[in-house]
């Protein structure tokens, strides 16, 4: 029984084409990058190729693209009102990108790009940069009124303003950590339970118990599909809510 549990190995980056080093940083075209471009390709297939005919009565793929569009447009509108329309490409791209990458991760033996903190943090940092840059460009210093709660006595502000600032900075962190942790934990759990199935099958008489973790693995896989879609939705919704701050900072 040389089966060893290794739930971490699946998250390793595998350089496909190495491009050398910059200091400690290793530059390479990894499988992660390949998956990212594949995701872009799939999204383009759904939203660009399938809509090429511009038919009024949509085909299956085109109606899929339309459903996603209307879903995100609704979410964005709910969070930001009419002013949020300009952020539609950003929120739509983020949602589709995260959704497709999460679903890619559900394919057996495939690599879950969103299980890497740097990727989710990159996306979250993009969101928060857009919020700050757009907020300052649109509202100037008034944007920083976001950090000053109204109706609070002056002395309390000395404590509350730093807390508000930290709370604001914690947003990209919670946004990225939430997605990363969900995907990572889900994949590790699936791997471990699936490993139990193998382990029990090889354990002689105990193999009669192997259906138990098998059912758990199946249930967990179904749950992970749900999490994959839900986390993409949460990412898009929170992005929309944060963008609302850039559009309408506190009065």
């Amino acid at each position: 029984m040389a089966v060893t549990i290794d739930p971490i190995h699946q998250f390793e980056l595998k350089p496909l084409v190495s491009l050398g080093h910059i200091g400690h940083q290793q530059l390479a075209f990894t499988q992660s990058a390949l998956y990212m471009f594949a995701a872009v390709g799939v999204i383009a297939l759904i939203t660009v190729v399938a809509t090429a005919s511009r038919s009024v009565v949509p085909g299956r793929m085109q109606s899929l693209a339309e459903i996603f569009y209307e879903f995100i447009a609704d979410t964005l509108h709910q969070a930001t009102g009419d002013g949020g329309k300009r952020f539609m490409p950003l929120v739509f791209s983020l949602f589709m990108f995260v959704l497709i990458l999460n679903l890619f991760g559900m394919i057996p033996y495939a690599f879950a790009v969103t299980s890497h903190l740097i990727i989710t943090f990159g996306l979250a940092a993009l969101v928060i940069s857009v919020v700050v840059i757009y907020g300052v460009m649109k509202h100037g210093t008034h944007f920083f009124g976001l950090f000053v709660p109204s109706g609070v006595p002056k002395p309390l502000l000395a404590i509350l303003v730093p807390i508000e600032i930290i709370s604001f900075i914690s947003r990209p962190i919670s946004l990225s950590v939430r997605l990363f942790a969900n995907v990572l934990a889900g994949h590790i759990a699936m791997k471990i339970f699936a490993f139990f199935v193998v382990q029990l099958l090889l354990a002689g008489a105990w193999s009669v118990l192997s259906p138990l973790p098998l059912f758990l693995t199946i249930a967990l896989t179904a749950l992970e599909f749900l999490v994959a879609a839900l986390q993409a939705y949460v990412f898009a919704t929170l992005t929309a809510i944060y963008l609302n701050d850039a559009l309408h900072p506190g009065h």
């Binding site: 709910q78 109204s150 508000e164 919704t237 809510i241 701050d245």
Partner: peptide
């Protein structure tokens, strides 16, 4: 700030001015 975040997400603490909070899932 972490506690404040949690309270705001779970709807115990006040909303930011001019913001419809509680939409966060």
């Amino acid at each position: 700030a972490g506690i404040y975040n949690v309270m705001r997400v779970s709807g115990f603490a006040g909303t930011r001015p001019g913001r419809g909070d509680g939409q966060e899932p």
